[in-house]
Structure formats: structure tokens, C-alpha cells
């Protein structure tokens, strides 16, 4: 028997009004696995991620994360979300707080830690992303790459079971992308389960366990990076891969 997957989403549908954005997506993510999601703009990648922690309400389907039924009205959603880290394209750091304040807010309010304990854990999380010396800076005083690493620290401080990344490097200047990918790589090595939506194909090649190609609200094809990038079986996948490799 295979061990229970951390993420187990089945037949997930999502409508925005008349727009059918997810058309029955099944996605399982095993513990310690890094799943890399690619697909054309508008194919529903972000929507899928946001359904996993219920920032979007799926229209139908079932979603289990670490054994917790995310769609059950009886589930304490705030408690469940604490176990699912999310990193956004635009960082979404709280501009009125320091880096440490950003990282410790949920530790204090959701995890119920004392301020001293939260500060200690927050400082450790900042250390893991290489920003221990920036704890007292506000987001406005940090570069984009540093802001995104603080955002990652904000998630990992809560010791999530899985982390969702939605285009974490797309808003960054090219020279800052590396530092964020570096942090993501070290997270992976520490055994974090990750679902990453990104255009960083190089990272996908050497860090992903599995690449999932989405188009038009469905998973079209998935497999090891080498297979998807070198010998895709589906015409749509081939077209998409061809397109990004030409650029």
C-alpha cells in the first residue's frame, strides 16, 4: 500500500459565473514530492492552487490535505490553512510591519505562541531564508527578492505540511530570481512537500519530481521532467513546450 498522499484533490470543478475554469482536476501529491505545474495563461493553474487552501471555493469535487477534508463545513479552515503555506507572485507582505512582524503574526494569533516564542521561531525562519540580519526592516526597505524570501519565511515558520507557490519569481528582476530559487531548492532538500506554478523551466528540470501540464482547466499530461520536456505524448503539450523553448 502506498502511503497516504499529502494533497488529494479529486474531480475539482470551478466556475466563475458562466466561465468554467477547472473542469475536473485530479491531483495527488505525495509526501516530500515537488510537483511543478505548467500551462498557458488562463489555463487555471492559480485557480487550482487557490482551491487547495480554499482561498477560492471549488464548485464541486473533493480536496483532502494531510487527511483533512478542506471542503467539509465542519473543518476549522483557519487551522487547516496553517498547515498549507502559500507564496504569492506579488509577495503580499504587510507593509506596516517589520520582516519579523510579518513572520510572527500568524505564529502568535493562529498557533497561539507567546511573543518571545514567536520571535524565536520567526528569527529561525528568517535565518533559513538567509535574512536573519533583516528582521527589523520593513518591506519597503527590502529588495523584491528579499521580500519574497520573507514571504517564504512567513509560511515555513508555521511548519506547513505542504507549500504552494504561485509564480514566486515572476515579479522579480532577473538578477534577483536566483536567490529565491536557492531558498526553494534548500526547502526541497529539507523534505518539504511543494506544489510550484512557475515558468522557471531550468528549476523544473533539476528540482521537480513531476511536471504537470494544464490546459483549459484540465491536466493534459504529467510525468518526470525529462519525459515531459523531451518526449511529450500529447500534441498540446508539445506545442506549449516548443513555444517556451523557442523563447
Amino acid at each position: 500500500m502506498t502511503p497516504q498522499p499529502i494533497v488529494d484533490a479529486r474531480a475539482v470543478h470551478k466556475h466563475f459565473g458562466t466561465l468554467h475554469v477547472l473542469k475536473g482536476v485530479d491531483l495527488k501529491v505525495a509526501e516530500r514530492e515537488l510537483v511543478f505545474v505548467i500551462g498557458p495563461s488562463g489555463s487555471g493553474k492559480s485557480t487550482l492552487l487557490r482551491c487547495l487552501n480554499r482561498l477560492e471555493e471549488p464548485s464541486s469535487g473533493s480536496i483532502l490535505v494531510d487527511g483533512i477534508d478542506m471542503l467539509d463545513p465542519k473543518t476549522d479552515i483557519n487551522h487547516a490553512r496553517r498547515r498549507i503555506g502559500m507564496v504569492f507572485q506579488s509577495f503580499n507582505l504587510y507593509p506596516h510591519m517589520t520582516a519579523l512582524g510579518n513572520v510572527t503574526l500568524a505564529l502568535r494569533k493562529v498557533a497561539g505562541k507567546s511573543r518571545a516564542e514567536a520571535d524565536r521561531l520567526g528569527q529561525a525562519a528568517l535565518e533559513r531564508v538567509g535574512l536573519a540580519d533583516r528582521a527589523g526592516h520593513t518591506p519597503g526597505q527590502l529588495s523584491g527578492g528579499q521580500q519574497q524570501r520573507v514571504a517564504i519565511a512567513r509560511s515555513i515558520a508555521l511548519e506547513p505540511r505542504v507549500m504552494l507557490f504561485d509564480e514566486p519569481t515572476s515579479a522579480l528582476d532577473p538578477e534577483l530570481v536566483g536567490s529565491v530559487l536557492e531558498v526553494m531548492r534548500s526547502l526541497r532538500e529539507s523534505g518539504m512537500t511543494m506544489v510550484v506554478v512557475s515558468h522557471e523551466m531550468g528549476f523544473a528540470r533539476n528540482a521537480a519530481d513531476r511536471v504537470v501540464f494544464m490546459d483549459d482547466g484540465l491536466i493534459v499530461e504529467q510525468g518526470p521532467p525529462a519525459a515531459i520536456f523531451e518526449k511529450p505524448t500529447q500534441e498540446r503539450t508539445r506545442a506549449f513546450i516548443g513555444q517556451i523553448q523557442r523563447h
Partner: peptide, 30 residues
């Protein structure tokens, strides 16, 4: 206050009220 602020806070498990009081209101008041 940008929607992303709500989403970031809610994704870390803060409730509606906690997000309003700790994240949104301090920025809005300013």
C-alpha cells in the same frame, strides 16, 4: 487595501476578524 493582503493573511490561517484587525485596519487607518 489590496486583496492580496487579505489572501496572504488568510492563507496563514488568520481568521476574518484577525486579518481585519491586525493586517487591514492598521494600514487603512493610516
Amino acid at each position: 487595501i489590496h486583496k492580496g493582503q487579505w489572501e496572504a493573511a488568510r492563507s496563514t490561517g488568520l481568521s476574518f476578524g484577525e486579518t481585519l484587525m491586525n493586517v487591514v485596519l492598521p494600514q487603512a487607518l493610516r
